[in-house]
């Protein structure tokens, strides 16, 4: 018996142990499931016409600061040492911040769809659904208001349909945690009225619902701060769709077990 197999036999739930500090050590079959999810989300993004980009795991403090991340989530950021000591860096809390950095001070020739996947870090209280380190796939939209809204709506439909294909019980509802900084209740209510953020949740390993995806309209929040404009000189709108890969894995493990989950993901149609 291999070390991995003997370890698996002693684990609660599934071979999906999470350390007290929120680090995940999946077993072999669960790693295959995570890999299969990486592939499916990547394929869906490319099939939808997104341009794939690869970004560093660390991000400059200036970019997070410009995004008002520290005002919104000051306790989530994880600082790292940089080799040249000329600036502060953090482990990236989301991959889309790099997209705004990439497009900073640019004029978009047309509607733009980017996709990226990366390791992300949020120092939330670790538990069986909040990992310190996790993998996020994002599709990020830039363009006019109606284009960004239509993209977000299309992805809501696509992913709810895909979850049904996987036999996964999910719920799509307006989210209550604000992704904008400042006066928290006011921001939250404004976000709620305008339907800026929806979350897709699914029962996780402990039986309670965990968010597996979010669908976000940023309006001009990021594009005005990063000076991304349309050809007419107007600030572009942006939006993003984000998938927490390990969360999908948790929901699938809870509802189907690893072998059935893997089969369903590999056999699913990407609904393009």
């Amino acid at each position: 018996m291999s070390i991995l197999n003997s370890r698996a036999s002693n684990l609660p739930h599934h071979d999906f142990p999470i350390s007290d500090d929120g680090l995940l050590f999946p077993g072999t079959a669960e790693s295959r499931l995570i890999h299969a999810l990486h592939s499916r989300f990547g394929e869906m993004a490319l099939a939808a016409g997104a341009e794939e980009l690869q970004f560093p795991t660390v991000i400059a403090e200036e970019i997070l600061d410009r995004s008002e991340y520290f005002r919104s989530f000051p306790h989530y950021a994880s600082a790292v040492n940089s080799p040249n000591k000329t600036g502060r860096y953090f482990l990236s809390p989301a991959v889309c911040y790099h997209c705004y950095q990439l497009l900073m001070n640019s004029v978009l020739a047309g509607d733009t769809v980017l996709t990226c996947q990366g390791r992300c870090f949020r120092a939330e209280s670790a538990n069986d659904s909040h990992l310190w380190e996790f993998t996020m796939r994002e599709i990020v939209f830039f363009g006019g208001d109606s284009f960004v809204r239509a993209q977000c709506d299309a992805w809501k439909q696509k992913i709810v349909g895909w979850a049904a294909q996987l036999g996964l019980t999910v719920n799509l509802a307006p989210a209550t945690d604000p992704f904008f900084a400042g006066e928290i209740r006011g921001k939250k209510l404004l976000q709620q009225i305008k339907g800026l953020k929806y979350e897709l949740t699914a029962p996780g390993l402990s039986g309670t619902d965990v968010p597996v995806a979010s669908f976000n309209l940023h309006e001009r929040f990021f594009t005005s701060r990063f000076e991304v404009t349309l050809t007419g000189g107007e600030p572009a709108h942006s939006g993003c769709v984000a998938f927490g890969i390990e969360r999908w894995c948790m929901a699938l493990l809870a509802q189907h077990g690893v072998n059935q989950a893997l089969r369903r993901v590999e056999e699913s149609d990407d609904l393009r």
Partner: peptide
């Protein structure tokens, strides 16, 4: 009311 950024996060609280 909520087009064009007329009502911001403070104004919505005052309205409520």
């Amino acid at each position: 009311l909520f087009d064009e950024g007329r009502i911001d996060s403070l104004k919505i609280l005052r309205l409520i």
